[in-house]
Amino acid sequence: MEEIINGRMYDTETAQNKGTWANTWNDNDYSQVIETLYQKKNGEYFLECIGGPNSTYGDYCRGQNWGRTFLKPISSDDAIQWAKSKLSTDEYEALLDKISEGSELKTMSVQLTTDDWNKLHQLAKDQKISVSELISKAIEKEYLK
């Protein structure tokens, strides 16, 4: 599933699944809720929210309740809280290690040429890491020796 939210693309096919929670695994239960936490290559998190017609995610339209599925961007802090309350201890600790390693994360904006942008993304893809991780590694290697 893919969706553009506030001008940003979120895609469950390209993001990494970090864990799934459900209030029940009975697909015949109309109150079923399934949430899956994903992390994009750039480090952003989002939830895929699936709900039956009688769930908290259900939608009322034309005199009838309907189930629905949607994507919901969340912050790193919200991802930690979600994982803490919804995932097993092992899944939570694995996720927390990846989020919490090192210093607090800060957001910045940069302008790059299209060529540099493409090179940066290709390097990150080749190394199977996010662009943020690639930039951090380059800074550490070159300037924080």
Rank of each mutant, 00 (worst) to 15 (best):
C61V: 12
S109Y: 05
Y10T: 02
G7A: 07
K40H: 04
D116K: 11
P73A: 07
F46I: 00
A22Y: 09
Y45A: 02
W21I: 07
C49F: 06
D90S: 14
V33M: 15
K137W: 03
K119H: 14
A22E: 13
V33Q: 15
N6G: 10
P53K: 12
A83W: 01
I34V: 10
I80W: 03
N17K: 14
M1F: 11
E35F: 00
K145C: 14
C49V: 06
G63T: 04
I34E: 08
G52N: 09
G67N: 03
Q64S: 12
T113S: 15
L87V: 02
L123P: 07
G51A: 06
W25M: 07
G51C: 08
M9E: 13
T12E: 00
Y60D: 05
S85V: 06
A94W: 08
L95G: 02
G7W: 03
N17Y: 08
T14P: 00
R68V: 05
K84Y: 10
S132K: 03
N28H: 12
E133H: 13
T56C: 09
S85K: 13
K86Y: 02
T107Y: 14
L120I: 07
N17M: 13
N6D: 14
K106Y: 15
Y30G: 04
T56M: 15
M9L: 14
H121G: 10
W66H: 15
E101A: 05
P53Y: 07
K128A: 08
K119A: 09
W25P: 00
Y45E: 07
L112P: 07
A124H: 08
Q81P: 03
Q32N: 04
L123C: 11
N26T: 10
I74W: 01
S88C: 05
W25L: 08
V131C: 05
S31V: 01
Y60S: 12
I80F: 04
Q111E: 15
V110A: 08
I50L: 13
F70Q: 04
L95R: 05
T89G: 07
Y38E: 00
T12C: 01
M108D: 08
D29H: 08
Y38K: 01
N26P: 00
Q64C: 10
T69L: 12
D115K: 15
G52Y: 09
E133P: 09
D27G: 10
R68M: 09
L71E: 05
T24G: 04
T36V: 03
R68P: 01
D116F: 09
C61G: 07
E104N: 09
K84W: 06
T56L: 14
L112A: 08
T56S: 11
G67F: 05
Q39M: 01
P73N: 08
K41Y: 04
F46K: 02
A15H: 04
L87S: 06
I99G: 01
W117T: 11
R8E: 05
R68Q: 12
N118L: 14
Q111K: 15
G43P: 01
K41F: 05
Q122Y: 11
R68N: 11
Y45L: 01
Q64T: 10
L37A: 03
P53D: 11
K125N: 11
S85A: 06
E2W: 10
